[in-house]
């Protein structure tokens, strides 16, 4: 586990991987990037909040990669307890029979390979529940 690094800083690894957002302490707007101020209320105070790890697919697409031989992937917007999160739907067949609007999904980790020091980058995706 020590030789892992999250793909993005808003992913927390460990026993219970989850995402964290910067929540505006004034209006509650949530962001996943480093902030200068709140785009909604212009406040400058943020608190770190954990995001629900289960959610519902609100939108998706199935992208056919240019490179022959590479598998299609499924970018999606997932509603995680009222917070919109972007990520790929994984661990299922990437076609319109297996991916549906409104389907229930949960966060899972996805390995993206190791660097020259042997540290493995770990990203996230959402897999169908059941």
């Amino acid at each position: 586990m020590s030789n892992q690094i999250p793909l993005v800083e808003y992913l927390v690894l460990g026993d219970a991987p989850h995402l964290v957002a910067n929540e505006c302490t004034a209006c509650g707007a949530r962001y996943f990037d480093r902030r200068n101020a709140c785009a909604s209320c212009f406040g400058t105070s943020f608190a770190s909040v954990d995001i629900a790890t289960e959610g519902e697919v609100r939108a998706f697409t199935i992208v056919t990669p240019w490179m022959p031989g590479t598998a299609p992937y499924v970018p999606a917007v997932v509603d995680c307890g009222g917070t919109s999160v972007r990520g790929n739907v994984v661990n299922t067949t990437p076609d319109a029979e297996h991916i549906t609007l409104g389907m229930k999904v949960r966060l899972t980790t996805v390995p993206f390979g190791a660097d020259t020091a042997g540290t493995e980058a770990i990203g996230y995706g959402f897999e169908p529940i059941n």
């Binding site: 793909l7 993005v8 800083e9 996943f32 480093r34 992208v63 992937y73 660097d115 980058a121 990203g123």
Partner: peptide, 19 residues
Amino acid sequence: TWTPSGRFGAVSSLEGKTG
């Protein structure tokens, strides 16, 4: 070596990895 950078502290291009 993986080095976080940018506003998401990403260690790699995110295209295709987080949507």
